[in-house]
Design a protein around this nucleic acid. Structure first.
Lengths: 239, 239
DNA sequence: TCAAATTGGTCCCAAAGTGGTCCTTATTGC
DNA sequence: GCAATAAGGACCACTTTGGGACCAATTTGA
């Protein structure tokens, strides 16, 4: 694993300087799958150049990520995603036990109500961020990998807009499994251009419901969205 | 931390000078979500330029917002939205940030669907365990502490019966917060003998629905159960 | 095998940014 | 005109960021 995934950084919004901004940026990049389990992040000096910040600043940002267990560093070797043995192994072991169907079930349990809350609490900036992410997702209709990341980001933004830190934390946990599980293999089979187009349309409808503050509609739409994802999954699993 | 959200100010009407006008303006900006919890406001000097006012004037406006708890200032660092400076720092326990209402909200999101799955997948031993736990809870009608433990156990058994390891893990996470949070204080206020009796009856009804494999009914009952818990909470919070 | 290159770890200090305080002068409202 | 308010500046205390030098461990490559 010698090649860095420098491309991962360019997928998301433009980086901005500052410890807080950098750590938040990297955290999003990791949680949305731009870097996955065990990947090595670019060297600190290169990150500093990318963010146009001093290495000491990047270092402080990485300190935060390390403290929250998201990355681990090995002297002389690099900075790696996850891998602190405990906080991560538990997640990994869990991820291996979860079938894609169970994953969708969990999302089906959590997301409809979360979306309802998001309708009530979403702010202008929240909606603005969603619109940007939606545009990116729609532009990635032919790139399964990219679409999958933007898809994850969109749902994460909804959880964020719910203004419930516990639900957000719950959704992060679900998302972590999603990034790891056999889902990766399913992705290839499921995400045909037609399916991606459908998902994009559903996302757009959900966004509109959020924008128009229609809680009931948003909840119904996200449920239908996940049920379609579940059906696509079952169809791919046993055609 | 150089990226300000100057755009936030432009979403509202042209600002007017004066301490009262500025503080009212900023308050509105915060409450409408132009700046959200934990965000840093622009520096005082920049606000002064934006409002075409003297820094000392902006300062007095911010004094008001700080006094009303809407913002908090950190010397050398900035002015932040939110009451305490602590909420900004990483590493604080999630449980400390969750209000009892948010906790119930999260349970309201997760448990109804989980219960539905439990109806479909619960085994005889599962149901048997539930019955035992229910009996214990009903025998603890006068012991808030004991009832609370059996209550938690009952809901955990439902999550277990769903046969979805991810949902179970999610529920454990929620339960962890529940054990830790200010919930402990609320427990004393909320759990009157009458309320405990109500909860026991609801538990019993849920169990019956599970036993009779009535998924729709079970889902409705658990929802009503949690909504009652939420209402009891709100009532205790502001009688 | 061994030396060079790479990479995180540590320490230091300077520069810039930001709120805190105090003061004098100008403007406003009665 | 008088009092209250706002403007504007100077300086302080503290935080954050920038940037360099060097060290220690690892990786790479001849």
């Amino acid at each position: 694993m010698t090649a860095y995934r420098t491309d991962g950084l360019n997928q998301l919004k433009k980086p901005s300087r500052g410890v807080r901004a950098i750590s938040a940026y990297l955290q999003r990049a990791i949680e949305t799958g731009a870097y996955s389990e065990g990947d090595r992040l670019p060297p600190e000096r290169q990150l500093a150049a990318t963010f146009q910040a001093a290495r000491s600043t990047v270092r402080r940002a990485l300190d935060q990520l390390e403290k929250s267990g998201l990355v681990s560093r090995r002297l002389g070797s690099g900075t790696f995603v996850g891998a602190t043995a405990e906080s991560n192994h538990r997640g990994v072991d869990l991820a291996d036990q979860i079938s894609p169907l169970q994953l969708i079930e969990a999302r089906l349990a959590v997301e409809p109500f979360t979306t309802r809350l998001a309708v009530l609490h979403a702010t202008r900036p929240n909606l603005h961020d969603m619109e940007i992410v939606l545009a990116h997702a729609e532009a990635s209709a032919s790139d399964k990998e990219a679409f999958s990341r933007w898809d994850g980001e969109f749902h994460l933004l909804i959880a964020q807009a719910s203004r419930n830190a516990l639900l957000l934390s719950v959704y992060r946990q679900i998302n972590q499994v999603r990034l790891h599980a056999q889902w990766d293999a399913m992705k290839e089979k499921i995400l045909t251009p037609e399916v991606i187009a459908d998902y994009n349309q559903q996302h757009r409808n959900i966004y509109t419901a959020l924008y128009e503050r229609n809680a009931q509609l948003a909840q119904v739409l996200i449920t239908e969205h996940l049920e379609k994802a579940r059906d696509d999954l079952l169809r791919a699993d046993s055609p």
